[in-house]
Simulated scan of single mutants.
Amino acid sequence: MSSRLNRVRGGHSWHQVFWWALLSAAACAASASHAQSSVTLYGVIDTGVEYVTNVGPKKSSSVHMPSLTSSLPSQWGLRGKEDLGGGLSAVFVLESGFAPSQGTLNQGGRLFGRQAYAGLSGQWGTLTLGRQYSQIFWAVLTGDTLAPNIYAAADLDPYLTQPRVDNAIAYTFTSSGLTVGVTYSLGRDAVDSAPAGGCAGQSPTDWRACKAISAMLKYDAGKWGVAAAIDRNYGGGGTGSPLPLSSQTDTRAVINGYVKFGNSTFGAGFLHRINHGEQTPTVFDATSNYWWIGGSYFPLPDIALDAQFGHITVSSSASGGSVIAARAMYFLSKRTSVYVNAGRVFNQRNAAFSIDGGVVPPASTPLPGVDQTGAMVGIRHLF
Rank of each mutant, 00 (worst) to 15 (best):
Leu22Glu: 11
Ala32His: 07
Ala32Thr: 10
His34Cys: 09
Val39Asn: 02
Thr40Gly: 02
Gly43Pro: 06
Val44Cys: 01
Val44Met: 05
Ile45Gly: 10
Asn54Gly: 05
Lys58Leu: 15
His64Thr: 13
Thr69Ala: 08
Asp83Trp: 07
Gly85Tyr: 06
Leu88Asp: 12
Ala90Pro: 00
Leu94Phe: 09
Gly109Ile: 02
Arg114Ser: 04
Tyr117His: 13
Gly122Cys: 08
Trp124Asp: 12
Gly125Tyr: 00
Leu127Thr: 07
Ile136Val: 14
Phe137Cys: 09
Trp138Cys: 00
Thr142Trp: 07
Asp144Val: 02
Thr145Ala: 10
Thr145Leu: 12
Ala147Asn: 12
Asp157Ser: 13
Gln162Ala: 14
Asp166Trp: 01
Phe173Tyr: 15
Phe173Glu: 02
Thr174Arg: 11
Gly181Trp: 01
Ala200Tyr: 06
Asp206Glu: 12
Ala209Leu: 11
Ser214Lys: 01
Ala215Gln: 08
Met216His: 03
Asp220Cys: 12
Lys223His: 04
Asn233Arg: 12
Gly240Tyr: 09
Pro242Ile: 14
Ser247Arg: 08
Ala253Ile: 13
Ile255Asn: 03
Gly257Asn: 05
Asn263Trp: 01
Ala268Glu: 01
Leu271Met: 14
Ala286Asp: 12
Tyr297Val: 14
Tyr297His: 15
Phe298Thr: 01
Pro301Trp: 05
Leu305Glu: 03
Gln308Ser: 11
Val314His: 01
Ser316Arg: 15
Ala328Pro: 04
Ser337Ile: 00
Val338Ile: 15
Ala342Pro: 00
Arg344Thr: 04
Asn350Thr: 05
Val359Gln: 15
Val360Cys: 02
Pro362Gln: 06
Ala363Glu: 09
Gln372Phe: 08
Gly374Tyr: 03
Ala375Leu: 08
Leu382Gly: 01
